[in-house]
Design a protein around this nucleic acid. Structure first.
Lengths: 216, 216
DNA sequence: GTTGTTTTTAACCATTTGGTTAATTTTTTC
DNA sequence: GAAAAAATTAACCAAATGGTTAAAAACAAC
């Protein structure tokens, strides 16, 4: 495998990433990928056999990139507010850099959830581990309506929504001004971090009433 | 236009709704729509001219159904917690009944945001109106980090996330148990309503410190 | 620099698919 | 109940598209 070959494969991956992420598996055209990579269409099959295989490679590539950071964060011993803050910060940066990813990933979640949960396993993402960590760091949660699952849904929901709804949300509330929306997103990182820190302040200091007022 | 014709059109719309909502515009096949409707494929074109036109009809149909309720809620004079509670309740019911809708809608948001914002206008959904209503009912918001836009993102995010992430979230945290997840969603309606009521309690009672502790 | 191997290309193929058409059946009109 | 209109169907068409192939070009080995 010479240097030229490596280069070609890289060009294909980059081009395929762009096209698949924007248009999805069904919407993507092999010809367009070849054109963007500046190579002959037959080369796509020479390197990756089929459209499906190429898509698999791209999808795994992207998800690994994402889950690597997630897995790393989980395994540190930050406090819960710090941990959640790190998540928020990472997702906001990551999706600001790759605006098409959220919709792309959710699309796959609906088309092929099994594969995604396989990839999670292979990337050492263990949901039970996360739930346990939360329950251990927020003992009050065990007597509360706020289960760990609700909490995760809250954090992910508040974090991801502005990204996945971006084209509409930006149009409707920000006059479709890209820069303005980018500032909103950056500002929101801090906003959410403070919000979560505040909300967890009471609950984490252990022996509390069994229904904290400040949930999220 | 006789009764038979109306019946056929209804059958087409129902079948097309199913297929488009599950597979998207690109993934849907005209033949499959015809088969599900139990009619000849040519009839699809006889009634709706083209795949795009048929899709438009379906999409508008669905969005109108949704926005009608939203518009109605906005125009009542409920308190803000009541109003937000009504939203949460509606979306949770609506998407529990139509689990494919969220992903379907977000897909369209990315493929054709302009059309969607047109439909919103035609359905009398005015975002400025919503923002004003919030600012007026939560005066403290004007001196706070929590802008109306953040608040809307929080409510929508927390509400929609469990629906749009359902296949993965259910698998990963609920052992892929459908009933269990449905209970989680129902329970979550109440959870979010209480959460929001609690969070707004302080802020709505007017003259407060300019940075409410209990945000969302 | 000839030979063998790998990479790249242009041309081609088979299938899928949205869409059309011309004929047939059903319904309406009078 | 005959004529006109509308609804329905089977057969067909053209374009798009994923994929293949055989030959050419680039490279490596000696």
């Amino acid at each position: 495998m010479n240097a030229l070959k490596v280069e070609t494969e890289k060009k294909i991956i980059e081009a395929a990433k762009e096209v698949f992420v924007e248009k999805g598996l069904q919407g993507a055209r092999m010809q367009e990928i070849a054109d963007r990579a500046g190579i002959n269409k037959a080369l796509l099959h020479y390197y990756f056999r089929s459209k499906d295989k190429l898509f698999d490679a791209i999808f795994e590539n992207i998800m690994s990139q994402m889950f690597a950071v997630v897995a790393e964060n989980i395994r540190t011993d930050m406090s819960l507010p710090e941990l959640l803050g790190a998540f928020v910060e990472f997702y906001n940066d990551f999706f600001q850099m790759n605006p098409f990813y959220p919709q792309f990933i959710f699309h796959e979640i609906w088309q092929n959830p099994d594969r995604l949960s396989e990839i999670m396993k292979s990337q050492q993402i263990a949901p039970a581990e996360i739930v346990e960590k939360i329950q251990q760091k927020v003992p009050a949660i065990n007597n509360s309506d706020l289960t760990a699952e609700h909490m995760i849904a809250n954090v992910l929901g508040m974090t991801l929504f502005p990204h996945i709804a971006r084209p509409l949300f930006q149009r409707v509330f920000f006059n479709n001004d890209n820069d303005k929306y980018s500032r909103f997103l950056s500002e929101r990182t801090d906003f959410l971090k403070e919000l979560m820190t505040g909300a967890l302040m009471g609950a984490t200091s252990s022996e509390m009433n069994n229904k904290p007022d400040e949930d999220f």
